[in-house]
Design a binder for these strands. Sequence first.
DNA 1: CTGTTAGTTATGCAAGTGTATAATTATTGA
DNA 2: TCAATAATTATACACTTGCATAACTAACAG
Lengths: 220, 220
Amino acid sequence: MGDERRKFTRESAAQRKEALIRATLSLIAEKGVRGATVRGIAERAEVTQGLIRHYFSSKEELVTAAFDYHMTQMTDLTFAPAAEVEGSAADRLRVFVQSSLTPPVVDPRSIALWAGFLNKVQHDAQMKETHARTYIDFRDRLQELIRAALEEAGIPARPERLYQLATACNALIDGLWMEGGALPEAFAPGELSQIGLDAVGAIIGLNFEAASAPRRGAQR
Amino acid sequence: MGDERRKFTRESAAQRKEALIRATLSLIAEKGVRGATVRGIAERAEVTQGLIRHYFSSKEELVTAAFDYHMTQMTDLTFAPAAEVEGSAADRLRVFVQSSLTPPVVDPRSIALWAGFLNKVQHDAQMKETHARTYIDFRDRLQELIRAALEEAGIPARPERLYQLATACNALIDGLWMEGGALPEAFAPGELSQIGLDAVGAIIGLNFEAASAPRRGAQR
DNA sequence: CTGTTAGTTATGCAAGTGTATAATTATTGA
DNA sequence: TCAATAATTATACACTTGCATAACTAACAG
């Protein structure tokens, strides 16, 4: 009886690091960066706290790694669906807007992570740079989708106007994303992406709803 | 020589409470709720930590009070300018969008506070209720402004459509607000409200830019 | 001028924090 | 089978945290 030393199995560095990062993200989403304590992270990853020091030289480094991991994952999640679309440019834009405004991108956890990291982003130069780069990358890709869709429709736009359209659509999507994540019960499934599609269409002056794939009780 | 007991002056309960709340908000904006320690708040308010206990029975209570204070202040800041406008409905809507998208509403500190509070909002029932109420209030007021502007222009909209327009415009404003606060250096002064105005006009189908008060190098 | 009191400071405590380091043990190669 | 070693656990430490409580004093009533 009594205290027995804890059993353990060795894992590869990559696996352990990822497990620690996932545990970190999970805790940051719940309690913020300061609430994600080294002991809490270790417990959630089912290791003891000393192990964290073995893979990350400080909590700071672990948090930074977790931020990079999360940003990469979110970017992939958002862009992958549109990249697979083979149809028209309008189709790609539509799929992009939809995947940005449905789970798992829209999710309370995802917005909690965004909020949890914001303080660090505002103070840490490296994280600030990653954040700005991700934002610009997102907006540029959206701008390219808009450009292609307008050109395809025979109403090309000048670069300055394209920039404004992309900024507005980006803000619209971010705002809907934020509200869907912060007030999940306030929106019916599909409502966000429906509103988002209509509004993006209105902003860029293109009704791509009726176009190809009909949705929501196709008339006629 | 050496340690002398600290001098102090008595203040009214209202003043001290407000000073403590302001110090709390200032620290939450910088370091989040957990980073805003009782000692740090006391130092910033230039009192000793014991005094906090005298006015608030726990840190939790102080944070909740600070949240209410902040939400009220933000709401006032946002709606006051539009309420003073005497002109057309389109004018009121325009002023509302502009005041929502310029300082002091758009501000890194303001978004840091939003992010700092989010975790508590998601977990604390009372704060969640305040948050949801503020959101709905904001959107309802925006919806009324849109309704009046459309009616004035002779293109009234049905309630269901109004709801969608207001939700989209609300998200657009929130998104621009968020981006302006999170990436201040990415936008020129006035750029956000210009983009916001154009996009709101496009969404609701009303060019209220040319209408009454001409802006930005008035033509003709 | 003086006693009272509530506003304020000072001090203490138990629990939690990140980090450092020593002690073990699972795994591997010969 | 067995030594070597890197992965993992266990322990310790100085510091911070929220909260409790005792000590003091500015302001005010009489």
